[in-house]
Structures are given as structure tokens and as C-alpha cells.
Design a protein around this nucleic acid. Sequence first.
DNA 1: TAAACTTATAACTTAAAATTATAAATGTAA
DNA 2: TTACATTTATAATTTTAAGTTATAAGTTTA
Lengths: 297, 297
Amino acid sequence: MDLRQMRYFTTVVQQKNFSKAAQLLHVSQPSLSNAISKLEKEVGFPLLERNTRSLHLTDSGKIMYERALELLNKFDHLTKEMKEVKQTGSGHLSLGLIESAKHWMPKVIHHFKGDFPNIKIQLLELLGVEQVQQSLLNYETHAAITNQMVTHRDLLAYPIYNERLVLLVHFQNELSQRPTITMKDLEREPFIISTSGFQTRKDILHAFDKEQASPNIMYEIERFETACSLVEEGLGVTIIPENYIKYSTFPSIRPRYIQSEALQRTVYLAHSKNRYLPPFIHSFLNHTTNFLKSENS
Amino acid sequence: MDLRQMRYFTTVVQQKNFSKAAQLLHVSQPSLSNAISKLEKEVGFPLLERNTRSLHLTDSGKIMYERALELLNKFDHLTKEMKEVKQTGSGHLSLGLIESAKHWMPKVIHHFKGDFPNIKIQLLELLGVEQVQQSLLNYETHAAITNQMVTHRDLLAYPIYNERLVLLVHFQNELSQRPTITMKDLEREPFIISTSGFQTRKDILHAFDKEQASPNIMYEIERFETACSLVEEGLGVTIIPENYIKYSTFPSIRPRYIQSEALQRTVYLAHSKNRYLPPFIHSFLNHTTNFLKSENS
DNA sequence: TAAACTTATAACTTAAAATTATAAATGTAA
DNA sequence: TTACATTTATAATTTTAAGTTATAAGTTTA
């Protein structure tokens, strides 16, 4: 019993005539006769009462007819849906983000939505590079914005922009007035830094190392948002990616560049090397890189 | 795109492995690979991201998978239902009846229900032989109890019993006391008879003719029930099939046999010659004839 | 009674789904 | 690292089933 037989059967019932049904189905009449009688053999009872002058559904055949119609209808929906899926993929985009990307990403999405208004977008916050790799390899995210090069053989990462790390101090802090600031200058300030596991923490500690300085860590936080609130209250100083503060406004905070080559980082766009990504996702990735090129040029 | 391909696809997804799925499906692995890639070509996008070490659904494939499961599930229900239908037919029996059968038929049904408790039975009242033929030819009824031989070439009718027609008079009527009654005796009585179109009317008028008598028709009715009520009130006399009054009780009515060969009739069980009738209907027909044989022996 | 239709059967062709054998890629274990 | 097991894909071939044409048998209509 297959869909072809059901299509044949329902058409014969509707036409009440094998020959006409065969024409509609673009098959020969004997082929149709044969298909129906095979179907009858399979179910084990006659579906149609037929001779050269009349054609009736049997009682049992009527039940078969109703069910067959339902099934064919469902199949029809399926093929239609697949045609849509072919155009728009699943209509779902899952993105992993580092915190500093959360301020420019909405602008990219805004552009993208102009082309693909019906795509559902899921934004996931990803902490370390481990989490980025896992989510990409497990197909939990289609792509990720990350601040560390991923080296996994099944993943591809390419740099999309560089950003400086910037010092944030309270405007009443003496440092806000200095013409130049070095890492050494920060040693006595209460320092606010990400908890262990975050890439930013590693970047900052590495920069201190390079300048043979060490921070006076007083607060460990998970989100830059929290760090900013602490600085706003004058409780300490912190270093965060430039892009985070660029789009935010904290009235009492003064951002200051520090003279240190190490205080910058590269941000990457990563995705699976082999995974099939539908056209709209490629389009999104292009939107992203183009937006960042124009922003940083 | 057919059910076979969907079954293959869903099994591969569930097994996450072509080779294992092929074993489960009792086909060779290349056949399965081929079927899936054909399916992918047809829908126009990859369903599975696969290589020698991993197998993932694509986003679009996931939608296909869900829909395919639904469709296969519905198909499963259909095949199960058809197995039941094979056993019990449509579970529906439609019977055409003449009025006088309505009193013994419930007893037959009672027996029948012992064997087939879940069959739904529809009882239709059929008037003339025309209506009987139409309902049988249009497959509106599976069988009919009728009091006239049907001669249509597609119909089959066989006698199931003979019944006498009996005179009904009010107990105060002088006729109720006579030792013998002839048709002539009825000429001055107000006579109650079925309206034109009913076979009983023809039978009775024919009997009067044979005895060179003619009734004094004062009332025309459609149902024996009505005729009995009129007699009960002493408004006239009537002649009805013995079987009707046999199972009813009207306190004031006295049934009397009349000496007339013509005052009897044969009741037939009729059905379509060629129409397929499921086993339970044949069983019902047997129940009927057996019941009547034992009743009238 | 002939002509026009119906569905079914038979013989044959065509298409597709299956098989076996084998290649290519990768993982595992000595 | 090499040998071996295990994965999916490809190629050549066989088998199955679906389709075709021709035609028979039965009915209806003109």
C-alpha cells in the first residue's frame, strides 16, 4: 500500500470511471485496473463494486476512501511545506555571541530583517572558547562571534574586526585626568575583572604580564554590565572591550586608552566547516562582515 | 517522494547510522544511501549532514523528519484500521423493512448482536416495491424485507415466510361472533385500507376482486398502527398481515381469519445480486432465515 | 444489429529498486 | 605508523514492479 495506489484509488472513486481516471492520472487504463486490484488484494476485501456499467464504493471501501483522502491531504501539505523550506531553510537562525557583540549585532539584524523578515533568530551568550566549539559542533548554533581563534579541524573562524580594550574610571578618579596611563598605574586601583573562564580575563591578565604589572583584583564579575555599574559607583576600575562601552552611556564613567600593544583583541566569526547552511544564513554572515567593514573603515 | 523513502529517512535519523538502519529495514546499505540521496534531490536541499564519522539532521531536514513521522503515523493508523475493517466490514448494516416485519426483526437483531455486538444497525421503512428496488440498487440498504417479488436483474429475492392477512374487528362488532366470515360480509363495514402505493392495499383489493366483492373504503392510512387505533375505537374494520398483530396487544380488537385463498402473502428477503457484502452481513441474513424457519415450523 | 463504451487479461517493455562488489574516508588498536 | 574495522558512496548487474499495447468480454446506445 503506497501513496500512488491511494491517489489512483481516490481518483477512480471521484471519477466513478476507470478510463476517465486513467486519463487524469496520465496512465493507461489497464495499469490503473491493475493497481486497484493489487490494493484490494493487499487490504483483503473489495473496495469497489464494479462492472461495465456501474461503479460503487463498498461500505469498507468508503472507509478506505476517507482515510486515503486524509493521508493524501497531509502529504500535500508536506510537499508544499518542503517547497517553502527549500526557499527559506528552517526559518531559524541560532547565533552564539560574546557580550561585546551584543551592542552592534542588533544593527546587523535590523538590516538582515529587511531581506528575510520571517526568520526567527535566537541569540545565545557563549562564554569561553570551549563553549563556542561545543555549540558549533553539536549544531546548537549556526555561527558564533568569538574573541578567540578556534582551531578545531571541523570549524572555520575568520577575523571580522579588531577592537581595543579600554580602561573605565570614575570621573572623580585621579586617573581620568592624566594625559597618559600605563598598566603600572593600575596596580593600586581596586580592579574589576571577569571570573575565570572568560577570554577577556585572560587577555587582560596577559597584558598586565607583558608590562610586568599585576592588578589588584577586588571584584570578579560575569558581565560587563556589572563591571560598569561598579565603576559608576566609584568602587574600582576595569578594562573592557571598546565596543561594549561605545554604544552605552554611563554618566560618571570616563573611558581611557592605555599605552599597551597587548590591550587589543581580534573578534572572529566562526562556523562549522562542513555543515550545510541554507542561503539565508550565508546572507546573514555577509550582512555581518559587510556591516563591520563599513563601521571600522 | 513516497512512504518508502520516508520510512527509510526516519529510520536513518533514529539510528544515526546508515548501516544499522539498512539492517533494520532489511535492505542493503547502498540501496538506503541511494534512496536518501534521491529524496534529497527531490526536495532540493540536504536532509542529513553526513560523513564517515558523524550524522546530523540539517535544520531543514529536522522539519522534514517531523512531518514524515506524522505522515507515517497516520499511515500506520490507516493500515491498522483496514485490518479491522477486513474483519468487521464497515460495522454498519442498513436494512429496509416492511411494517409487519418490525415486530419480529428485533428478536433477530437480538440474536445477531450476540455474535457481533459492535455493528451499527439502521432500519429504514420501505413502502412500495419501487422504493425497495431503488434503495438496494443505490446501495442505500444492504438488504430488504419486502412483500413483493422483485424481478430486477441485479436483485435477488427469496421467500422467507408466508403470512396470512387477518381481519380485525372491534369486539362489539357483530362479525367478531360469527363462526365464519367471507369477503362479501365486509362489504357494508366501514373499511380501513392502506393508501395507494402500498403493496398490502393491492393484495387486499385483489382478494376482494377474486371473491367478487368490493370494500366500503372509509379510511385510508399509511401505517398499520393507525388502522389498529381506528378499529380499537370501533370506527371500522381492516385487514392486515397476521405478523403485525401477532406481537401487539389491542384490548378491544378481535382478529378473525377469512375464508379466502388470496388473503395471504409471501414475504421476501431481497438484496443486490453482485454487491459485495462483508461476512457479518451474510451472518445476519442467515440469522434472519433461521429465525423465521424455526418460528414458522 | 453495429458502434461506442466499459473493465479485465495477456504479453511485452520500461523504469526503478534491489543486490553484490568495491572504493574512499576515517577511526581504532597493536 | 601500520593493519584492520567501520563508515558512506559509487559502479555494474539483477530483480521486481509498474507501465504499455493489443485485445477480450460484457453493456449501452443509436
